[in-house]
Design a protein around this nucleic acid. Structure first.
Length: 276
DNA sequence: TACCAGGTAAAAA
DNA sequence: TTTTTACATGGT
């Protein structure tokens, strides 16, 4: 038993919901009440435990990944202070106390995952992504499989990805991303708008995909995917007065959550999903 | 059975 | 320049 302490507030149940909500995630497997993920060439098991989470094995290689998978490093206390002054968020924060959005451990994985989710339902995206992981993944643990390495997909052919359920066009996006000379690690040093500018240069990466990269990989506090269908539905439900808001209206409403647009988006989405 | 789902780019107008 | 269309799968 290796206990990793968690910040306050923290809800393991709520924060791991994304790994279960839309089907089986072959890289982040929910099994027997615990989350399983390959780190390096080992499978890590993460489970709730009194006083924190039980992580096996826990060491310098696995801890940073686990922290990202569980969203442990978001400034939730700062968010709660700001949310207290906003009626809708105040209610959501109370109902979803300790919810921390998971972060993707790897930038390439984050982008490929978003590409699979473009236009289609998340259940459909999970299914296609699962087949991609089965076919091109790395180390196979007892439950989880390592997400495909960039080199593995750089060597793939468009036809092979199409057989897994990618549209021809999306297959091309994934391969072009894998083969591009953009250093995804370097993006972390750039401001939000510069990151987006670099990413949308790539084929198949538009503003939506770039926004989710800021939110789910770089954990930028102000990331606000205004064009996201789910977020538009959520914002419309809570602020639309019975009307469906446009992307531009949602974008403008983001100012109200300054400087915690990212966490606000996740709480609004979770609020919609759980009917809160 | 159709139709929609956490978009994007290319064609058509 | 703005609007329309194709795309592939899973769920309802």
């Amino acid at each position: 038993m290796a206990l990793l302490g968690v910040p306050d507030p923290y809800s393991f149940e709520l924060s791991t919901g994304r790994y279960r909500a839309f089907g089986v995630d072959r890289a982040n497997v929910w099994y027997d009440g615990a989350l399983h993920r390959v780190v390096g060439d080992r499978e890590v098991r993460i489970a709730a435990a009194p006083g924190g989470v039980d992580v096996e094995p826990l060491d310098a290689e696995t801890e940073p990944v686990v922290r990202r998978l569980l969203g442990l490093d978001f400034d939730l206390q700062g968010f709660e202070r700001v949310a207290a002054g906003e009626p809708v968020l105040a209610r959501l924060v109370a109902q979803l106390r300790g919810l921390r959005p998971p972060l993707a451990p790897d930038p390439f994985e984050s982008l490929v995952t978003s590409i699979t989710a473009q236009q289609v339902s998340l259940r459909s995206a999970f299914a296609v992504r699962g087949r991609l992981i089965e076919r091109y993944g790395g180390y196979r643990g007892a439950h989880a499989i390592a997400f495909p390495a960039r080199e593995a997909l750089a060597a793939a052919a468009e036809n092979e990805l199409a057989r897994l359920g990618f549209s021809r066009r999306k297959a091309g996006y994934v391969i072009a991303l894998a083969r591009s000379d953009l250093d995804l690690e370097d993006l972390a040093a750039l401001p939000d708008e510069e990151v987006k500018a670099r990413l949308v240069e790539l084929p198949g990466i538009g503003e939506w995909t770039a926004d989710w990269f800021l939110a789910r990989y770089l954990a930028r506090p102000r990331a606000w995917p205004a064009g996201d269908l789910g977020l538009r539905k959520a914002v419309s439900r809570f602020y639309g007065d019975g009307r469906d808001l446009t992307t531009e209206e949602v974008r403008a409403l983001g100012a109200r959550f300054e400087p915690f647009q990212n966490l606000s988006a996740h709480y609004l989405l979770a609020g919609l999903l759980t009917g809160a």
